[in-house]
């Protein structure tokens, strides 16, 4: 795509202004000029990643990250056939909220990964150990992304990890306690911790070998 940096800036501006029509126009225009993977990866995913970075640095707010992800998810649903956008060779992935119902973080990561061409099962919220062990086995999940809001839930992940055993499953965690205590993810035995959407995307890209 020509003018990629310009398009990213324009898309970011539209998303932060919540102008979904303008964002959709930029994406459609890019689709005509480039291939689908470039649009989802180099444009949408990179833009959402940059918005996540700006939040991490304190220059944007969580609501802006969330609304940007939602807008992109809807545009992709409306403009790109599902089979065209998927990245090849990706692991079987699922995402959910462990033990409570605060869905925001999960929705942001889900939207950003979907917008970047990844397919993942949305397990919803209020998930128990039994729910997760069942779904991991039944769906042969290789990467499990878990979001938590409360410290006790984060600490319970250690027990869940033990119950899941050494199946080769990669456990990626995120949520407020992990942002405030940077050592916590290691303490609970997670394989990766994504502090924001940009980091989650980076981790999944690395695990999938789709750099």
């Amino acid at each position: 795509m020509d003018n990629l940096d310009y398009l990213k800036l324009e898309l970011e501006r539209s998303l932060l202004l919540l102008d979904s029509d303008a964002a959709e126009a930029i994406i459609k225009k890019s689709m005509m000029a480039g291939d689908t993977y470039s649009v989802t990866g180099d444009l949408i995913s990179a833009t959402l990643g940059h918005i996540g970075d700006l939040w991490e640095k304190g220059n944007l707010s969580l609501s802006q990250v969330y609304m940007s992800g939602m807008i992109c998810e809807k545009i992709i649903e409306n403009t790109i056939p599902p089979h065209v956008v998927l990245k090849p060779g990706q692991p079987r992935m699922a995402i959910g909220v462990y033990e409570d119902y605060h869905m925001l973080g999960k929705r942001i990561i889900y939207a950003v990964l979907k917008a970047s061409g990844y397919e993942l099962i949305d397990l919803g919220g209020g998930l128990s150990d039994d729910d997760l062990i069942g779904v991991v086995n039944r769906e042969k999940i290789e990467v499990l992304l878990l979001s938590v809001l409360m410290l006790p839930s984060a600490l319970h992940i250690r027990n869940l990890k033990n119950k899941l055993g050494n199946s080769g499953l990669k456990l990626v965690v995120g949520g407020a306690p992990f942002r405030i205590d940077s050592e916590l993810w290691k303490e609970v035995g997670a394989d990766f911790c994504g502090k924001d959407a940009a980091e989650a995307l980076e981790i999944i890209t690395k695990i999938s070998g789709n750099s």
């Binding site: 919540l18 609501s63 969330y66 609304m67 939602m70 119902y101 605060h102 869905m103 925001l104 929705r107």
Partner: peptide
Amino acid sequence: PVMQLGFDKYFELIH
């Protein structure tokens, strides 16, 4: 409203 509606729906409400 984070506890009344959930964060995600609340953001959409505000906007």
